[in-house]
């Protein structure tokens, strides 16, 4: 088991200040470790990996890793990532978002990235709260939970990210937790390796903003709860309604094998480039081919 941390240290930026900015017990650090182990396990070079992050606590992950890193705007990480992937398909693009980031302000980008099946590994670090801005309700805050903007309990129904991504057409959808780090390593590794849009929801506790307001004494309490709640998808499917209460299925939910947008684009482009007259100055209206007209014209011209 040794050398895990030493390996991680090799991928951290040595000119950045550590410890990182995350609060004590924040799961984001564990998720970052999983990401590094997944990249290392796939033998990817640091140069071919791009980490694109949104805004929020999760967004700060990008600054610590020695890859190509882009810290974007709130909710829009997937749009930047889409541009990078289409411009340079050889790069492995990993997009890190939070729950508010990916599902509220960036919800539309998420469903469209999934629909396009663009070749991106999307990691949504779900801590059920807006952490960085002071603990406000997010689209995954459980019903009844107390937050800075739901002091009397959250009224809205939370998003099920797995269902959402599945319906939108993602190639691969999985859910893991930072408590089961080995499973998380495998899920993230698959998401990076596979073609198309691959999403991993990572359940990660936020004690500072969520736990304290919702009767968790300390970070350890939250990890205990996570340990209890997370059950493998296969087992969960056989649970009764009562057993499912307070439980969250983890594992792989969708495994499709459709080519990514960048690959489909490449195929279309290759076909177009193989055609003669691909480099006309301006497109002829109505898809008209000047060569065939010329022959006809010669017959009618007086």
């Amino acid at each position: 088991m040794s050398d895990v941390t030493q390996l991680i240290h090799q991928y951290l930026r040595h000119n950045k200040k550590f410890p990182h900015v995350f609060c004590p017990g924040c799961g984001h650090g564990i998720a970052l470790g999983s990401l590094i182990r997944a990249v290392h396990g796939l033998s990817l070079s640091k140069d071919e990996v791009v980490v694109v992050a949104g805004i929020g606590c999760s967004g700060r992950i990008a600054v610590y890793v020695d890859f190509n890193t882009v810290h974007t705007t709130h909710g829009r990480a997937l749009t930047f990532a889409t541009g990078i992937k289409m411009a340079s398909p050889k790069l492995k693009v990993i997009c890190i978002m939070g729950d508010g980031d990916a599902l509220a302000i960036g919800g539309n980008h998420l469903i469209h990235a999934a629909r396009r099946n663009i070749g991106i590994a999307a990691l949504v670090l779900n801590n059920n709260i807006y952490g960085m801005t002071g603990g406000q309700t997010s689209p995954t805050t459980p019903g009844g939970a107390r937050t800075a903007t739901s002091p009397y309990g959250a009224l809205e129904k939370p998003f099920d990210l797995v269902d959402l991504a599945r319906a939108a057409g993602a190639n691969y959808v999985a859910r893991g937790t930072v408590f089961q780090a080995h499973l998380l390593d495998r899920l993230i590794s698959s998401a990076i390796e596979r073609p198309g849009f691959n999403l991993v929801e990572v359940l990660t506790p936020c004690h500072t903003q969520y736990g304290r307001k919702n009767k968790f004494k300390n970070p350890v309490d939250m990890y205990q709860a996570l340990k209890h709640a997370a059950v493998p998808r296969e087992a969960w499917e056989h649970f009764s309604e009562a057993e499912r209460k307070e439980r969250i299925p983890v594992g792989v939910f969708v495994e499709r094998d459709e080519p990514g947008l960048e690959e489909r684009y490449r195929v279309m482009q290759a076909a177009l480039l193989a055609r003669p007259k691909a480099r006309e100055a301006l497109p002829e209206p109505n898809g008209h081919d000047p060569a065939s007209t010329k022959a006809k014209l010669e017959g009618v011209e007086s």
Partner: peptide, 21 residues
């Protein structure tokens, strides 16, 4: 006339060319 005809021909798909000329 000849120039107009040529321009018309260049703007049309082949299958409707004859009728339009």
């Amino acid at each position: 006339q000849a120039v107009m005809k040529k321009a018309l021909a260049a703007s049309l798909p082949a299958k409707v060319l004859d009728k339009n000329l």
